[in-house]
Simulated assay, not measured.
Amino acid sequence: MTAELDRATRPHHEPDRGEPDSPTSTAITPRPRPPLWRRILRDRMVLAFAIPGMVALFAFQYYPLLGNVIAFQDFQPFLGIEESLWVGFQNFGILLSSDPAFLNALWNTLILTLIQSVLIFPLPIVLALILNSLLSHRLRQIVQSILYLPHFLSWVIVVAVFQQMLGGSGMINNFLRSHGLETLDIIGNAEVFRLLLTSQVVWKDTGWATILFLAVLAGIDKSLYEAASVDGASRFRQMLHVTLPGMKPIIILLFILQLGNSLTVGFEQIILQQQAVGIEASEVLDTYVYNEGIAGGQWGTAAAVGLVKSAVGLVLVISANKLAHAFGEQGVYKA
């Protein structure tokens, strides 16, 4: 009786001395991880479905990377990689030279990269905010379907559509000509070629990128908007303090991924229109690699330029990802 009274009056945080722990306080030991062969046997069906994709990825993505070795050779196709002469870093000298063709391609690439990063990247965000503000769900779906439909068209069709609309014999110029008005010189005009490229990219890809941001907007907790409305926040302040913070992770992720392709500004789109405007106005690093390597036979120099371009993209992605970690965001991968 005395022992029971002493146990009842003892503070709850003081354990019973000399008494075994209760079953509920016993720590649960984690189950040991199964060996590798057992996990493979367990997931054999999943692995079987993944094997074709892994083989295709290795065959068409990773194995061709070995061909970058020609950047260090005076590569001759009829000799092959094994017998071509090694020249070390001689092909990379084009990056430090004053070759006007390379400098012109580099300058055009940087200008288009700046335009795509500053002007084109925010457009899907703005468009997603506008569509999200529409009260009618059916109207939102109709507008969204119309906007992302051009994404499924190839660049051949996109360029052909713009030529039929804005070309010298296109629909707009035929209309102006039939009414005695001055025609527009757009297709083939080197001075407006960058504006033409930008408008084509906006028309083709802005609607598709909007889908990602609309999906993020749909996942934001509606109670946050209700709480902000109760506190007297206007629609604009709700966008600043609720919507944009909710979109920030995906915005940072997509921006980092775009930096990886920042020096890739559309090979197909430009090569299809290069003959109309000339090399000086349209040459970028991707078309320079094609014109110098495949068409010009300078395989080693072209490979060196392409390798450096990829390396710069990798450095930009890693740097931007570390910067995202510094601001508390996850980025593309964890630190």
Score class of each variant (00 low, 15 high):
Met1Pro: 10
Glu4Val: 14
Pro11Lys: 07
Pro20Arg: 15
Ser22Thr: 11
Thr24Trp: 12
Arg33Lys: 13
Pro34Leu: 14
Leu36Lys: 02
Leu41Arg: 15
Leu47Asn: 04
Ala48Asp: 00
Ala50Lys: 05
Pro52Glu: 05
Met54Phe: 15
Asn68Arg: 09
Ile70Leu: 06
Phe75Met: 07
Leu79Ser: 08
Ile81Val: 15
Ile94Tyr: 00
Leu96Gln: 00
Ser98Ile: 04
Phe102Lys: 04
Asn104Tyr: 00
Trp107Cys: 01
Leu112Met: 15
Thr113Cys: 11
Val118Lys: 07
Ile120His: 04
Phe121Glu: 10
Ile130Tyr: 14
Asn132Thr: 08
Arg138Glu: 03
Tyr148Gly: 03
Gly168Ile: 06
Gly168Asp: 03
Arg177Asp: 12
Leu184Phe: 08
Ala190Arg: 11
Arg194Phe: 08
Leu195Asn: 12
Leu196Met: 13
Leu197Glu: 00
Ser199Gly: 14
Val201Phe: 12
Trp203His: 02
Thr210Ala: 12
Ile211Tyr: 08
Leu212Met: 13
Phe213Glu: 03
Leu214Gly: 02
Ala215Val: 12
Ser223Gly: 14
Tyr225Trp: 06
Tyr225Lys: 05
Glu226Ser: 10
Glu226Phe: 04
Glu226Pro: 04
Gly232Asp: 05
Gln238Thr: 00
His241Thr: 10
Val242Cys: 04
Pro249Thr: 07
Ile252Gly: 03
Leu263Phe: 07
Gln269Cys: 02
Gln274Asp: 03
Ser282Thr: 03
Gly293Ala: 06
Gln298Asn: 13
Thr301His: 03
Ala304Met: 00
Lys309Gln: 14
Ser310Met: 09
Ala311Val: 10
His325Asn: 08
Ala326Val: 09
Phe327Arg: 14
Phe327Cys: 08
Glu329Asn: 13
Tyr333Thr: 13
